[in-house]
Design a protein around this nucleic acid. Structure first.
Lengths: 194, 194
DNA sequence: CCTACCGATCGGTAGG
DNA sequence: CCTACCGATCGGTAGG
């Protein structure tokens, strides 16, 4: 029991250290030795917990999904509330650059179809677009969107905007305000502009 | 003379091969041996032309700047024409994924301040935002923009949108239309919506 | 979990 | 431009 609990904590430590390393160096560039060093064990000690480098990446992505799923319950059905919660997420991210780096670096690395996280990001983008599109559609039906705003295109724009802002902000934190830019963009799409 | 010309051609070959490798693997992951293999020389033969790995990266970025400068003369003063030429660029990029990969991968890698291309991308983003902002400002003064569209924020949005679309498109080419999405977005900002 | 090791690969240098 | 080499580092395995 005690041994099991200790193992679980150690695994969580390793996953957190790996996420940090992937954010700083990318997945391929991050070494098992560096991650192990952050946790205070040898690199083969790490391989006792995760049999391969790729298994550790999978664990990192699964933990992110678990965190996201826990948050997703907060914003319920598609609609304006979803978009507001995504703006809140951007505000939250402004105080947590490590998470932003993790996603931005892995997403760019995983454009190659042979990257082990490629499928993960393809699904991630599709789900995000679907959720945002459904939200814009609900808003259009409620008469909240300006005429001529297409929910499908607006969804692709919104997701791309969030991603592009992250890279620009990481590169030049003082010159880009993610939250305000997103908020202003959304106002542009609303009938009453508020 | 003949020797010099041959050397120049060889250098151009190496730069092109390096750009391809950076697009596929990123700068840090791309090896001198792989790049040399593409050109048909040894990796130390490559180091005869470029003394360090970083010198080769600098050469790749300088060549991109030279190509961009040649194109820039085409779109003249800030204004709607600049934005149209950027949409054309997106259309052009749709047929040249290698260039898109090069930029997307290097930009994400270079968010770290200690990356050798960090300064390059910080300048690149600043210049792009300035040009687009000046263009939106000119359009606002000509009465072409909808009320409430702020040129400064619209510029950040436009650049972020272009970048974010590229990663989404590279990940799922069949699910994202970069050109149409950009065009639709621009129409949203215009007074007459055309 | 560790030590000790493997084969492979890396950027760069020496010397021609 | 090449061959030959350097020290460093990589992911993974053997054996405990």
């Amino acid at each position: 029991m005690v041994g099991y609990a200790k193992g679980r904590v150690r695994r969580e430590d390793i996953i957190a250290a790996a996420a940090a390393a992937y954010g700083e160096s990318g997945y391929r560039q991050a070494s098992l030795r560096d991650i192990a060093r952050r946790v205070g064990i040898s690199h083969s000690g790490l391989l006792y917990h995760f049999p391969t480098k790729e298994a550790l990446l999978t664990a990192v992505l699964e933990r992110r999904d678990a965190v996201d799923a826990a948050r997703e319950r907060l914003h319920g059905p598609p609609g304006a509330a979803v978009l507001r919660s995504m703006v809140s997420l951007a505000a939250h991210n402004t105080d947590h650059p490590a998470i932003v780096e993790l996603y931005s670096r892995l997403a760019a690395e995983a454009v190659s179809p042979d990257h082990p996280a490629h499928g993960y990001f393809a699904r991630h983008y599709r789900r995000a677009r679907d959720l945002v599109r459904a939200s814009f559609t609900a808003m259009a039906e409620a008469g909240e969107l300006r005429d001529g705003v297409d929910p499908d295109r607006a969804a692709t724009v919104f997701i791309a905007l969030m991603d592009g802002l992250q890279v620009q902000w990481l590169t030049s934190p003082d010159e880009v305000d993610m939250t305000a830019t997103l908020r202003t963009h959304l106002a542009t799409l609303l009938r009453d502009g508020s």
